[in-house]
Amino acid sequence: MQGSLKPGGYGLLVLPACALLLVFFAYPVFWLLLRSISEPHWGFANFQVLYERSIYLKVLLNTVVISLLVTLCCAVIGYPLAYTMAHGGPRVRRLLTFVVLVPFWTSILVRTFAWMVILQRQGLINDLLLWLGLTERPLALVYNRTGVLIGMTQILLPFMIFPLYSVMLRIDRSCSWAAATLGAPPLRNFLRIYLPLSLPGLMTGGTLVFIVSLGYFITPALLGGQRDIMIAQLIEQQISNFGNWGLAGALSLVLLAGTALCLALVRRFVGGQAPWGRR
């Protein structure tokens, strides 16, 4: 280490940022995680509670199920859009990039609020459904899992679209054309040639969406019901309502471990760069 840190060397430039993060990020997180085994007494009692009480296990399961569903929805909806972005004309590309970037830059709170307005009992969607005669009574679209899925999918869609788009841009279309010339039907051509080539983007995007979903707080808190709360809400409740730092620490450790595991998996399969980098 010392050898490359010449006096006045460039390496010193990383120190201020590292120091800030060490004091105001790494230490607090470590302190929180340590609570899981130090409070109320040293030991693994908190993890035992997590394991034995079925409500906590239910929250963990619920978190994974919602995250998987959101990831699936993002993949299904995001794929055609990313495809069009990558292979459409320059104007289409510019328009779609703008359409994806605008919500990406907009506050999650604002977007969640928008969905509260639209999905409520007398909201736009219900009005529309009633007017079309598709339903006789307003549907419960919010304060339940449906609301959480609709909101989270919209909010996380850009995380799926950008990695997909950047992979699709680099796909050599001549492979598909060659297959088509040789008589491959379009669907088979897509499944055998294009889809496998775009798989790294799908994996990166999917993992990104899944990881971010796991720790989601604002959207499930506002659009979800009492029955399907997610792990981040449980952590907040344990601290704000019960001051139970031990359990909050244990839940945080579980969440962090899950996140790290997913990251390690995607690194293993896709390799290369960290998926969260912006360009």
Binding site: L21, Y27, F30, G215, A232, L255, T259
Partner: peptide, 22 residues
């Protein structure tokens, strides 16, 4: 580099709870 990117990767709820306690 990984360390400097960590606040984006660690779920914000964990960072928030930790900073609050600290």
């Amino acid at each position: 580099q990984g360390f400097l990117m960590a606040p984006v990767v660690v779920p914000v709820i964990i960072t928030a709870a930790g900073i609050f306690g600290f």
